[in-house]
Amino acid sequence: MSVTLEHFLTVSTLLFAIGLFVALSKRNAVAVLMGVELMLNASNLALVAFARLAETSLAITGHVFVVFVITVAAAEVAVALALAVAVYRNRETVDVDKVTSLRA
């Protein structure tokens, strides 16, 4: 019994697909954001799996990239949640179907 790179990539892909579904289908803006976080985590898992298991001379670069992804995800989540709170303050809802004032 052994675990190969394909195993990790399959788990990562499934997690990404679930995250994509959550981000595209949920009605609450905060839930949409949770889907984005799931997708980012799935990509991080793939990057770390490549760094550890793939034949490359740049293995540590995978870890560096994960550090940057985590940083940007933290910045993104702070701004996005601030946006959700700002939208809520003006319209008393964070339902992405009801925030349609830009619709022609």
């Binding site: 009605r27 609450n28 809520y88 992405v96």
Partner: peptide, 8 residues
């Protein structure tokens, strides 16, 4: 805001 975690 609604907290039912519903889909669109």
């Amino acid at each position: 805001a609604s907290r039912d975690n519903a889909e669109t």
